[in-house]
């Protein structure tokens, strides 16, 4: 698939359960887009600040800021989004503490489940329309939504629909309908799912993808499987190692090392083959879950390598962006 087609829908929602790599994948996608001269904005909804740290920039605020060339970021706090919403819809400025307390939001959320998500999506919609709270205008080619893990991503996306069903009447209904249009229009929005090659994440991803289709009528975009261990040895090398192992000749590896002047003790050799065994054991577990995923979905599956890095930083994101480009082009 052409990268530009992949990036065609302006709104790109990246979702998945906690800790699977949503923020990492969002950042890598943003880099891919920026390399093609697109101006992108990543929206962060949780308070972790992971995104700003990845780009080594100041913490994000409700006003977009540029984290690296053409890659912008914004932090959406439901309270801020509520204030903007009240302001835009009802010309109410933040008149009282009441509207900013969490209990106020709790009550609204209780009466209208998903309301916080509506606020967040509403802000995404404002961004799509090029509106910001300050006078500064932005026109983003892509808005990448690093979707919250809390709650379920489905309720996040379903919330406008849930609302339209629950609130047969009521003023928020019109707003909710716009949002439903936005998320269900494949030319405007694409939802990608991030997962890990592990049992529960795969099961949940398949369920989410299925529920998206059944309940919202949207096809999920790609399913990104993150942190997949890359293949270390070629087939011949594996059988060579198996041969050495089964003959109990691993000590010979020390002799091979000695040929190039490298001094290896017996423990070193044990550790070397130990990590190879660990990697292979985990790789076969991952492969099983990957197969289950591929069997269970028709959506394109994109794998991203596990990076052995001392904490991910921008160069790692560039590496993942390289991998993404290749994988997407091969779709």
């Amino acid at each position: 698939m052409e990268l530009d087609d992949f990036l065609g829908p302006r709104i790109i929602i990246v979702s998945g359960k906690g800790g699977v790599g949503k923020t990492t994948v969002s950042a890598a996608l943003a880099i891919v887009a920026a390399r093609r001269g697109r101006k992108v904005c990543i929206t962060e909804v949780d308070r972790k600040g992971t995104l700003a740290k990845l780009f080594d920039s100041e913490p994000l605020t409700y006003e977009p800021s540029e984290m690296s060339p053409n890659v912008w970021g914004i932090h959406i706090e439901p309270g801020d989004a509520l204030a903007e919403y009240l302001d835009v819809q009802y010309h109410m400025k933040r008149i009282s503490w009441v509207f900013t307390t969490t209990h106020f939001l709790d009550i609204i959320t209780t009466t209208a489940p998903g309301f916080k998500d509506i606020l967040v999506l509403g802000k995404v919609w404002y961004l799509e329309q090029g509106r910001t709270r300050s006078a500064v205008k932005h026109s983003f080619d892509n808005v990448i939504v690093d979707a919250p893990a809390a709650g379920h991503m489905l309720s996040f996306l379903e919330s406008p629909k849930g609302l339209t069903d629950a609130l047969r009447v009521g003023p928020i209904r019109r707003q909710a309908e716009w949002l439903v249009d936005m998320v269900t229009d494949p030319h405007r929005t694409k939802v990608h799912l991030v997962t890990l090659p592990e049992e529960m994440p795969v099961i949940e991803t398949l369920e989410t993808s299925e529920a998206l289709r059944r309940r919202l009528g949207i096809r999920s975009g790609a399913i990104f499987v993150n942190a997949v261990y890359s293949e270390l040895l070629s087939k011949q090398e594996r059988s060579l190692l198996a041969e050495i192992r089964s003959a109990g000749r691993t000590a010979e590896l020390a002799k091979v090392a000695a040929r190039v002047g490298l001094d290896l003790e017996e423990e070193d050799v044990d550790a070397l083959v130990g990590y190879e065994r660990f990697l292979e054991a985990r790789r076969s577990i991952q492969a099983r879950h990957l197969r289950a995923l591929r069997r269970g979905t028709e959506e394109p599956v994109v794998t991203l390598p596990f990076l052995f890095s001392a904490g991910l930083a921008l160069p790692d994101i560039e590496t993942l962006a390289d991998a993404l480009e290749k994988e997407i082009e091969a779709l």
């Binding site: 009802y90 009466t111 309301f115 009447v169 009521g170 003023p171």
Partner: peptide
């Protein structure tokens, strides 16, 4: 405000 947002029925 709550009424405006969610409607009086809810």
């Amino acid at each position: 405000v709550v009424k405006r947002i969610v409607g009086s029925e809810v």
